[in-house]
Simulated scan of single mutants.
Amino acid sequence: MTDATPGERIALPCPACSPDVETVHEVLKPGGHVTVRCTDCDHVHKEQIPEDTTLERDVVVSQDGDSFSAKVDVPEEETLAVGEEFLLETEEAIMTVRITSLETAEGREDEASAEAVQTIWSRAVGNVAVNVTMHPKNGRHDETESFKLQVPGDYEFVVGETDTFGDEEFTVEGIHVRDDAHGYEHEKMDFDGDMAFAKDINRLYVRDETSTAWSAW
């Protein structure tokens, strides 16, 4: 990365506050030894940044039922896998996406080297639309309502807990997680205390807790 430009942000260890773990640095002055500033402690220091060999790969991003294509530079030695997340920078925005499939010359794979990958299939997980099926308080399934809820991808839904979004108030009764979600023991969860992140949820089953004012007069 010898072509670093002023204002660019790169990951480097900071000799002042984080010598062993990389932190975000801002490039102040490019050159053979780049002048950088740690964004955590403002320490300014010079670093020689080795040139990375990267491969440009196509990315298809699915977001709220739509999809678009972009490009991403992947380190040549990198191994990619379904379920991994990375930051994708486009002209419109910087977003977090999760790999859902890897297309190679041999077909779709769950894991492949960057060199073998032709297209990275992914979905946006920074902000997501969660499918919700809501049952009324009286339990009548013929009055079941379905809708989508826009929330941050890291929002936690917990079985047995009540959530409020605008005019909607409901108690989570069950969670069905996505195929590309990792770290969950079961695909379907319905025990109190079971938790899943919004970005991992395929469908949320809830009970309506909205109180409706009424009068007998």
Rank of each mutant, 00 (worst) to 15 (best):
W121I: 08
R207W: 06
I120E: 04
A129W: 04
A196W: 05
V72Y: 11
A116K: 09
V132D: 08
A181W: 13
L55W: 05
V24D: 02
K71A: 09
S211Y: 11
T164W: 10
K71M: 10
P19G: 00
D66P: 02
E185A: 13
E168T: 09
E168D: 12
E8Y: 13
I201N: 07
E111N: 06
D52A: 15
A196S: 12
C38Y: 02
D200N: 09
V44C: 06
R98P: 00
P19S: 03
V97C: 03
Q63K: 05
F68M: 01
A81E: 06
Q48E: 10
N138R: 11
T5H: 13
P6D: 06
A70N: 01
D42S: 08
V74R: 02
E115M: 10
R178Q: 13
V59F: 09
E76A: 15
G160V: 06
L80G: 10
D163Q: 11
H43W: 12
L149C: 10
F147Y: 14
A198T: 10
E47K: 04
K148S: 14
E111M: 14
F157P: 09
L149H: 03
F170N: 02
F147H: 07
E78V: 08
P6Y: 11
K46F: 14
D20I: 03
E84Q: 11
K137W: 12
I49W: 15
M134L: 07
P6I: 08
R203H: 06
G7K: 08
A198M: 13
